[in-house]
């Protein structure tokens, strides 16, 4: 069993809500049957989610559709604003500044340098009209690189890693298969060697053999580069294969967390038990 000692990301009490909230919201928050307040109908997509991520660790987040998994990672990637919560990224000011308190420009900088994101829908993560190589280049350019030779060589190295054939690299991802698009997204997310990578349902919608290829690739990259990853999935098979530790989410809350093997073999919460049984 690998020991994880060095924290790379610390998330504290992330709450993402839709609505103003009311005095009864706190009472309703303890109710796991629903993610909204029965008085003011404020929806809590994430409720007081806290966790730490360690260097080289893959943290799985599992739960049914609408449980708040994607909202959580998208909030961490600054795509959605949170109502409250703190996030400390240890590559940024040694983890002393809450990255939600940074300026819009600093957030972009963090996204370009310190974070990577692979979406379920490649249309969100890629410029479909531009070539695969240009898609990788965009992140390098955003990080300040202005040398075409260097950008191209770096992009080609990454496309080698994700096994995009050389003769397809000048083609637009819109002409690629779903698996290839996901691989280009992974290469793009890795372009600036981010310490933390978010993967949001990366294998959903792919057929089984392509899923296996993408999962093998993710595992290989993680081993070779020792990147910390947060992988969101509703598929326990994916979590079982990749994650060292797992959070189970339901109605915006983390209801159970622990080592993946422990969660799968000895689930404590009824929902988790149901989820695990559905896998078996």
């Amino acid at each position: 069993m690998q020991d994880f000692e060095k924290k790379v990301l610390s998330v504290k009490n992330i709450t993402r809500q839709f609505g103003e909230g009311c005095e009864y919201c706190n009472e309703d928050k303890s109710n796991l049957n629903r993610n909204y307040c029965s008085h003011c109908y404020t929806i809590y997509a994430c409720r007081d989610v806290s966790f730490d991520l360690y260097e080289g660790e893959i943290l799985g987040i599992v739960g049914e559709s609408g449980s708040g998994k994607s909202t959580l990672v998208r909030s961490l990637y600054f795509e959605q604003e949170v109502a409250k919560g703190e996030v400390y990224l240890f590559s940024h000011k040694e983890g002393k500044e809450n990255i939600f308190n940074t300026t819009s420009q600093q957030k972009r900088y963090l996204r370009d340098y310190s974070l990577g994101m692979v979406y379920q829908n490649p249309y969100l993560g890629l410029q479909m009209k531009f070539s695969a190589i240009s898609n990788i280049a965009q992140k390098l350019i955003a990080a300040g690189s202005r040398n075409v030779g260097q950008i191209s060589s770096c992009a080609n190295e990454l496309l080698d890693v994700v096994k995009i054939e050389e003769f397809r690299r000048k083609d637009a991802p819109s002409t690629f298969s779903g698996g290839m698009q996901q691989r280009v997204q992974i290469a793009k997310a890795l372009s600036n060697n981010p310490p933390v990578l978010f993967l949001d349902e990366v294998t959903t919608g792919l057929d089984l053999s392509v899923q296996a290829n993408v999962l093998d690739l993710i595992r290989k990259i993680q081993r070779d580069l020792n990147i910390s990853m947060i992988i969101v999935s509703h598929d326990l098979g994916v979590i079982k294969m990749l994650a060292n530790r797992t959070l189970v989410m339901l109605e915006g809350c983390v209801i159970e967390s622990g080592l993946t093997d422990q969660i799968l073999e000895d689930p404590q919460q009824p929902y988790t038990q149901q989820l695990v049984h559905s896998l078996l």
Binding site: A137, Q138, K139, I141, R146, V148, K170
Partner: peptide, 15 residues
């Protein structure tokens, strides 16, 4: 954040 404007030029160079 002007990486998009640079990207258009980069794409032309690549192609």
């Amino acid at each position: 954040e002007y990486s998009g404007a640079w990207l258009v030029l980069f794409e032309k160079i690549v192609k």
